[in-house]
């Protein structure tokens, strides 16, 4: 037998109904939480883990329709299944519940066999949705997953203002020649773990992993207050983390790792590129090219951290180590000022 579990929130202003429903679900192996009106239920949702709502419609303070509206408008609660249990009169009211996102309707008094079947089916659907969400987040970052859930999937892009960061592990090819494959993968995993942390803790997303480097986006798909500031902060944390890692490596008698980081800010086109079957969230435009070139430029200039003028202009309180005036950058006609941090 499948083990039943789950926290069910029973929302009903009538004490007899609350008691009866909680008894029924507890006999089925679920845990019951109780709320005597919609307002109490919504407050409970903020603090308790709830897998499903059994929702009455006629209630004082906040009725079932209003609860459904709150759930629908909140991305965090939107996926919680709702079974309306009511003796509300009129087919139009039931239709309204379904239109507002209720998964099912059970008339009161609730038939125990039907309740059992509907609960199992709704919770199984929720389990599958949760699993899908987890998978999506593993392969696409939670921001992209969120964007997909909100807007659905469609090949195509939109223009946005963003900062693009490229980061590359220096001399990796040479390093990997001295290591066995297992150690190489382990080193890469350590590198990626640290770099991902720097990116995501500053509200960016890693959009590409490129062997021994990565491309991160700040300001897409979700806009940021100051994408330059976030990207530069992420860059700084990358260097801090590599420094800490190098201290550890020195203790083990290993060589220092070095990275180069380039950041550019401006208009990009971001969206899903690929085919309907396999696509990736990506970003293109001259801002992306410039960021990649700046990262490459770190090998030439010897400055490890380079940013373009637009990124620089948006920073608050920044100390520049050096400015390279009117630098000719491959692929760009006009020479431009770049700054080393």
């Amino acid at each position: 037998m499948v083990e039943l579990s789950g926290n069910l929130l029973i929302v009903d202003d009538n004490k007899v109904n609350r008691l009866l429903l909680s008894r029924s679900v507890e006999m089925l192996g679920y845990r019951a939480l109780l709320a005597e009106n919609g307002r109490v239920a919504v407050n409970l949702l903020a603090t308790q883990d709830v897998d499903l709502l059994l929702l009455d419609i006629e209630m004082p303070e906040m009725d079932g329709f209003e609860v459904l509206e709150v759930l629908k408008s909140n991305p965090e609660f939107r996926d919680i299944p709702v079974i309306v249990t009511s003796s509300v009169e009129g087919l139009d009211n039931i239709v309204r519940c379904i239109e507002l996102g209720a998964d099912d309707y059970l008339p009161k008094p609730v038939n125990k066999t039907l309740l059992k079947a509907r609960l199992a089916s709704c919770l199984e659907k929720k389990r599958l949705r949760d699993e899908q969400k987890r998978l999506l987040e593993r392969f696409a970052t939670s921001e992209v997953a969120q964007d997909l859930q909100n807007s659905g999937f469609a090949i195509g892009g939109k223009r946005a203002h963003a900062s693009v960061l490229f980061c590359d592990l220096r001399g990796f090819t040479g390093l990997s020649e001295q290591l066995d494959p297992e150690a190489t993968i382990e080193l890469l995993n350590t590198f990626y773990t640290l770099m991902f942390e720097a990116v995501t803790s500053n509200d960016g997303i890693v959009s590409l992993m490129l062997g021994d480097g990565l491309m991160a986006l700040f300001g897409v798909p979700q806009p940021l207050e100051n994408s330059s500031q976030s990207a530069v902060q992420a860059g700084r944390e990358m260097f801090d983390m590599i420094e800490t890692l190098n201290t550890e490596r020195a203790g083990e008698g290993l060589d220092d790792l070095r990275i180069g980081v380039g950041i550019a800010t401006g208009e990009v086109v971001a969206g899903y590129a690929g085919t309907d079957n396999r696509a990736t969230y990506t970003c293109i435009g001259s801002t992306v090219n410039l960021a990649a070139r700046l990262e490459a430029e770190t090998k030439i200039t010897g400055s490890q951290f380079l940013i373009d003028q637009s990124t620089f202009d948006l920073l608050e309180e920044v100390e520049v180590a050096r400015t390279y005036k009117r630098t000719q950058i491959k692929g760009f006609a006009e020479p431009r000022d770049i700054h080393a941090l």
Partner: peptide, 13 residues
Amino acid sequence: RRAAHSLKSNAAT
């Protein structure tokens, strides 16, 4: 209406 609704619901139970 709500009070009548509550009574109706419990009476049916």
